[in-house]
Every structure is written in C-alpha cells, then in structure tokens.
C-alpha cells in the first residue's frame, strides 16, 4: 500500500516536471512559426490595403479567413469587434491582440510591435499605412531571427531539463 502510494507520487512528480519542460520548450518552438504567420498576415493585409481599398473590417475578415490558424482567428476576432457595436479601430485591434497573447507563443515585444501598428491602421492615408505595415513586417522579421536563435539555444535544453529535473525531484522526495 505504502509502496504503491510512493510510486504513484513519484510518477506524478516526474510527469509534472516532464510537462513543464514540454510546455516551455513548445513555447520556444512555436514562437518563430507564429511570427512567420504574423508576417504573412501583415503581407496579405498590405496587399488588401494597396489594391482592394476595402473597408478595414472586410480586409481583416478576408485576411483572417484566408490565413486560418491562431493568427487568422485573431484577425477574424478583430474584424468581428470592428463590425460590432460602436467600437474604434484601436479597440478592435486590441481585441485581436488579446487573443494572440493568450493563444500563441508571441512575446510581449512582438505584441507591442503589432500594437504600434494598430494605432496607424485605418487612421491615416494609404501610403502611410503601407509604410507602417512594411516597417512592422521588417521588425517582425528581426524578432523571428532572434526567436529562431533562442529556440536553437533553449528548446532541447528545456525538454531535457524538465523531464530529468522532474525525475530528480521525485527521487529526492521519495
């Protein structure tokens, strides 16, 4: 009885450590892909702004639909918020950012880049918007490179550290 209890506790602690490692590692692993998705979305958005000259809500909706994934969902949400009861562009954009922050692995700095972009979106003339979109894509590209380096440095480390650290902690507590 006592032994089973101990073994069960050991398994629980070890599994918890493993899962912590996996979670941190996967957030490192997903961030470059998420950043890439954001760049793709902004690219689509800039072509919408440049050629289609649609209303911002429709453009966001279209980009979100064609992109899919979590980033696409965020765009759809922003579009829905824009179409909803008397919201400004900034609030709608904020809604999409909130969704991004909770569901993707983007860091606060990445979100901040998108936030500064949102202040300009739909508020100035077309050339200015395009310029800001290009700048945001550029900055996201830099962030992606950094994220890639961070992933190479940290992903395997966290995977091993979580699993083995959980095992070690379990052994100590046993």
């Amino acid at each position: 009885m006592w032994m089973t209890l101990k073994a069960g506790g050991f398994a629980l602690v070890a599994t918890a450590g493993y899962m912590v490692g996996q979670t941190v590692a996967s957030s490192y692993a997903r961030r470059p892909d998420d950043l890439k998705q954001c760049q793709a979305a902004l690219g689509l958005l800039s072509s919408e702004v440049e050629y289609a000259t649609t209303h911002l809500g429709v453009a966001l909706q279209r980009v979100g639909r064609s992109l899919g994934g979590q980033v696409g969902d965020a765009f759809c949400r922003a579009a829905a918020a824009l179409a909803g009861p008397a919201n400004g562009t900034v609030e709608a954009w904020e809604e999409g950012l909130g969704w991004l922050q909770t569901t993707t692995a983007l860091s606060r700095a990445d979100i901040e880049i998108l936030r500064t972009l949102g202040l300009r979106l739909g508020a100035t003339d077309r050339a200015d918007q395009l310029r800001h979109l290009a700048v945001a894509v550029e900055r996201l590209k830099v962030q992606e490179e950094l994220a890639r380096q961070a992933r190479d440095r940290n992903e395997t480390v966290w995977r091993y550290l979580g699993a083995l650290g959980g095992l070690a902690l379990g052994l100590i507590l046993l």
Binding site: T156, Y160, L164, A168, I172
Partner: peptide
C-alpha cells in the same frame, strides 16, 4: 545512484 546518473546526463546534454 539515480540522482548521479540524472546529473551526468544533464551535464553531458548541456
């Protein structure tokens, strides 16, 4: 012994 092996593996990995 188990602890030592875990430390060894972590050390090697790092």
């Amino acid at each position: 012994a188990g602890f030592g092996m875990i430390v060894a593996v972590l050390y090697w990995m790092f």
